[in-house]
Design a binder for these strands. Structure first.
Lengths: 175, 175
DNA sequence: TATTGTTATACTCTATAACTATA
DNA sequence: TATAGTTATAGAGTATAACAATA
């Protein structure tokens, strides 16, 4: 077990990292705040899925997911089609317009981050991504009941060959 | 310059790290939310300082700092005394009651983090802390006008021998 | 006139609980 | 009865702008 001051320092660092997130949020266009951007990014990255799966990836309550999804749907950035096999569910799919928006956001991010992280090497950024993914996994795994897929970078299947744990992230209903 | 996908991945990781922060926020007692905890932690760690210096360390607007400080002051966890040399300013000092509260928070943190991060070595936690500090520095330095002290872990002087850049964090007024 | 800090207002993100519609 | 998603409400955190007191 690590020393007390290390945990305290980690607490401070995690608190303070909020400023970095706010910095990134500021470069987003007003019509597409962070919550919307996260929805679009995940749908483009992981392919179509249902609400509950998206909520899991976002790591927020499904009610929160519902709000974000409603917002991006109003802008025409995603489609919400009823799941033919379970009409309580909706399958979320990013639209061409949504892809264009993600591309725009990505360009803003890359431009900003390239400026901020000019003196970081490729390897260092990879290491940071890996450690952040591991940190998330450590928190996921330990507390709430349900085990989840690891957040390791580069793990997600590309959208063209999208295959989640189950197609569309639909979990087989309990027996 | 790193590859596009690395920056995109970093964007996703930073977005998702919010869940970790929320997890830590949940272990705090209701009367002392994250904003209050951050104020107390910084005042204990860095020693007495004025509002403007605290706002800088918190990396939020001074109006936000004012709210948080008012909350912890109402609980008697800090003292706000007028600065004798500039009566517009207030010197913030943590009280014994505030120290006790920080100790309590620290125990909660250590207990929770020791559980979550059971399979992390000391070195790995240090590395994460170091990388997060560097990430913050990269963002600080690049954009806003004013250069700031680095956030490197272990850099802050212990409160018993507190010596900021200037005493109490009071910046010498411009000529 | 400029600066320190406070307060009023608005916005984003989040969770809980009540509700609907399907299963 | 149980589950997927929606909506209403409440709370934390933040920023901008108008303001007070002091320099």
């Amino acid at each position: 077990m690590a020393a007390r001051h290390q945990y305290e320092e980690l607490g401070r660092q995690l608190t303070a990292i909020g400023a970095v997130k706010r910095g990134l949020a500021r470069i987003l266009p007003p019509e597409c705040p962070m919550g919307s951007a996260a929805v679009l990014s995940l749908l483009k990255h992981h392919g179509p899925m249902r609400m509950s799966r998206l909520a899991e990836l976002l790591d927020v309550d499904i009610s929160v997911t519902s709000r974000h999804v409603a917002h991006v749907a109003e802008h025409g950035w995603i489609d919400r089609s009823a799941d033919p096999v379970d009409r309580r569910s909706r399958i979320l799919t990013i639209t061409d317009s949504g892809r264009a928006k993600v591309t725009e956001l990505s360009e803003r991010y890359v431009h900003a981050l390239a400026g901020y992280l000019a003196d970081w090497s490729d390897d260092e950024i990879d290491q940071l991504n890996t450690q952040l993914a591991r940190l998330r996994d450590s928190f996921d795994g330990a507390r709430p009941g349900s085990p989840r897929a690891p957040h390791t970078p580069g793990t997600a299947a590309p959208e063209t060959s999208a295959h989640e744990t189950t197609p569309h992230g639909i979990t087989t209903p309990p027996p």
